[in-house]
Computed example of a mutant assay.
Amino acid sequence: MAEIMPPQVDAEQSSLAVPSLLQNIMVGWGLLGGVIFVVIVVMSIVSIVGRKLFGAPITGDVELLMMGAAVGSAAFLPLCEWEDHHIKVDALTGWMSTKKRAGLDAIAHLLLCAMASLIAWRSTLYAIEARENAEMSTLLLVPQWLPISFLVPSFALLAVAAYCRAGNAIRIAWSDR
């Protein structure tokens, strides 16, 4: 795979405190997503065993599974973007120079930044609306604004990560090398 690696920068040339802090936040957020998935897997196993052996599944397990899967999977997105581990199709760009690929990557990262910002904004508005309208899930009566509001930080972090990756790709595309 033809991946563009960030240029090595001396500690004296640039302060790495902000990127390091962002990376720690994104790693922590991704780990939280992993914990959510572990919890919903354990809950699903308990519910299935309870249903088969005792005729007593966990009430609303599918609702919890859907909410948890949405929140958990969204939590992985910022770290995937930060580490540049999204799926890429390099068949069309493998022959290009590093600078041209970096230019295309910059466009892709900026588009992702715009879309993640839009989704974070619209999710915030929907969470506010769902809270005002007292929307609840069907079985457990979980307020719908709660899981939706947990999506907002994931998409905001995704926008920040995409913005940082775009800046890195632009520096590579405009470099003298």
Rank of each mutant, 00 (worst) to 15 (best):
I48V: 15
V49F: 05
R51N: 12
R51P: 00
K52H: 09
F54P: 01
G55C: 09
G55A: 07
A56V: 11
A56W: 02
I58R: 02
T59W: 07
G60F: 14
D61L: 08
M66K: 04
M66N: 10
M66Q: 10
M67I: 06
G68D: 03
G68Q: 05
A69S: 12
G72C: 04
G72D: 02
S73F: 07
S73V: 09
A74F: 05
A74N: 03
P78K: 02
P78G: 05
L79N: 02
C80S: 09
C80D: 00
C80R: 00
C80Q: 05
E81P: 01
W82R: 09
E83D: 05
E83M: 09
D84R: 12
D84W: 02
D84Q: 09
D84P: 01
H85V: 01
A91H: 10
A91M: 11
L92Y: 15
L92W: 15
T93Y: 06
G94V: 06
W95Q: 13
W95G: 12
M96N: 04
K100S: 14
L104P: 01
D105M: 05
D105L: 03
I107R: 01
I107Y: 06
I107K: 00
I107M: 11
A108S: 12
L110M: 13
L111G: 11
L111T: 11
L112Y: 03
C113A: 15
C113F: 04
A114V: 14
M115N: 03
A116D: 05
L118K: 07
L118H: 10
A120Q: 02
A120H: 02
W121F: 15
W121K: 11
S123D: 04
T124Q: 06
Y126F: 11
A127E: 03
I128G: 08
E129D: 14
R131I: 02
R131K: 14
E132S: 14
E132D: 15
E132L: 13
N133R: 12
N133F: 08
A134N: 15
A134L: 12
A134C: 10
E135D: 14
E135Y: 09
E135G: 08
T138Q: 09
L141P: 00
V142M: 15
P143Y: 08
P143R: 03
W145M: 10
L146R: 04
L146F: 15
P147R: 03
P147S: 07
I148C: 09
I148F: 07
S149L: 12
S149H: 05
L151S: 08
L151C: 10
F155V: 06
L157V: 03
L157K: 05
L158C: 07
L158F: 10
A159Q: 02
V160L: 15
V160D: 01
A161I: 01
A162H: 03
A162T: 06
G167M: 10
